[in-house]
Write a protein that binds this DNA or RNA. Structure first.
Lengths: 167, 167
DNA sequence: GGGAATTGGTAAGGAAGCCTGACTATACTC
DNA sequence: GAGTATAGTCAGGCTTCCTTACCAATTCCC
């Protein structure tokens, strides 16, 4: 323990395939998704998939999120978002309440049950993160976090054609 | 650096939603995929999707890759991999050649055209990476790369039930 | 040598996630 | 009040991937 000494220059293994960073991020994300999904298979409490988790996660501590705002955050269409929310609603994790000032909109609220389940999910995520930290060190992971946040902050807007502003 | 002394206070912004690292990785990956896919929409040269890119990327500089090995690398079933390879073959990027020593197997080889297209794709990835580097600095990105590689090295084996070794 | 079990590969059908297109109902602007 | 923009839903389809089922070549083992 205590800093596994990561060796930041790659010293290519010789054969082939030094993955690009972009590829690494995508592959890691897939590995994480698979990992998290595996837990779900065990009949866990989590809603359904990762998207549902992301959606619920976004709802936490917010009380004025509408479907379209969630859609923007998730980077998918509002229609797909609506499906996700419906699933979340049917499993008792989310409640649709009338919007206080806009009668066509509805705010999405986590139910108590939803909060509890999300909390369990978050603990699981935290576990993975801790494990990762044990591998490379907390400080490195902080750098990773900052870099990812910076990227997302820079282009958090590649909407898959909200398609409402098209002629 | 190399300080076991964990300094875990992130100074929460107060309002809400400090994303977990796991979430950040997944969201970044999606952003990247969307970004890369956007280029494809413009009638670009790239095969089809990110998976195809990952597959082609793995084939580069290797000459003895079979479908199942590729499947293992991609983390999907061999059936799905076969589909991917077929698509790659139909677009002239990959060629299936008989395996030198195993007559039931076939090796997957990038055609010259495939190599050219892959190269163009890699340049695009590199561009994204450069942009990111401009944002956070090369050195930080090197840390990110190392951390991702470490994670993948640790659990690169979550096969979605190869399902051939069951009961 | 001659099965039996493995392994590489393919084919057909289905589940899941997301998208486009079309349509209400409310809100904003003049 | 008319016209446009926005929140949301419904219907249908595409894509990706998985499951189940199946061949063909290989290896194990007697």
């Amino acid at each position: 323990m205590t800093t596994p000494e990561i060796d930041a220059d790659h010293t290519p293994t010789g054969s082939a395939a030094e993955d690009e960073l972009v590829i690494l991020v995508i592959r890691t994300a897939k590995a994480l998704v698979d990992r998290l999904g595996a837990g779900r298979a065990g009949g866990t409490s989590s809603p359904m998939t990762v998207v549902h988790g992301l959606a619920a996660r976004y709802l936490l501590d917010r009380e004025d999120v509408t479907t379209v705002e969630l859609a923007r955050h998730l980077g998918i269409t509002k229609q797909s978002t609506s499906e996700v929310v419906t699933a979340l609603e049917e499993t008792g994790n989310v409640r649709r309440a009338p919007h206080p000032s806009d009668r066509r909109a509805r705010v999405l609220l986590l139910t108590d049950e939803g909060k509890a389940r999300l909390e369990s999910g978050r603990r699981r995520w935290q576990g993975v993160e801790d494990e990762w930290a044990a591998l490379v060190g907390r400080d490195r992971l902080d750098v990773v976090r900052a870099a990812l946040e910076a990227y997302l902050a820079a282009h958090d807007d590649d909407p898959p054609t909200d398609h409402a502003s098209e002629c």
